[in-house]
Amino acid sequence: MLELDGVAVRYGRTEAVADVSLHVDAGEVIGLIGPNGAGKSTLLAAISGQRRAARGTITFQGRAIDGETPERLVRRGIALVPEGRQIFATLTVEENLRLPTFARRDVDADALIERELERFPILRTYLHQHAGRMSGGEQQMLAISRALLCGPRLLMLDEPSLGLAPKMIDAVFAALDSLRQEQVTVLLVEQNATRTVAFADRSYVLVHGRVAAQGTREELAGLEEVTSSYLGLEAGP
């Protein structure tokens, strides 16, 4: 579904992503972990059209998408839950939910919104209030719902548990688990490496803008450098 081949992304002279190749198959949940500054968020920005790749190619459903605008990529089926949630604080929860449906033709927006309200019932409580009034965890539910209302084939999440209380982190991962049941393809960037690797079908470890390791939880657990540096796990035999 998504394939990156030798992708590099720059901020001026700084190369935030040096050389990343990865692939995501339909229905997979892929984790992307690594230390601060490894280039994880930059990579999502490149895939979602917010930044252009300086080198390499990004292919989505067999089609090169380098240089396409974020709004066009949304229409192609790529949605991003951005870091820090970025909900529209001065819009009501309903307006936040309705916004992505304007870009979709031939859909019953009310029915889709109702489905999201059933997924996250807490949103119904705040439906006609400014979204900025909600707690961080509730805002994260809204951010995920809003991205799902884009009708994504690939859902990318950037640090969805950042700044949340443990109970809320559990709720976010429970929501991601329900998406897995619905066969939604997910690319998950997280600081919480242990939980991400345990949750994902496969994971990539990004260090200094390059893929340092990749594999399933069991495969990564066998790599001593990865386990000691990022996962806090005992290396396998």
């Binding site: 917010q50 949304v74 970025q86 916004l99 992505p100």
Partner: peptide
């Protein structure tokens, strides 16, 4: 930027 991520042209 976020509006564009929601498909706003």
């Amino acid at each position: 930027g976020t509006a564009r991520l929601m498909g706003v042209k």
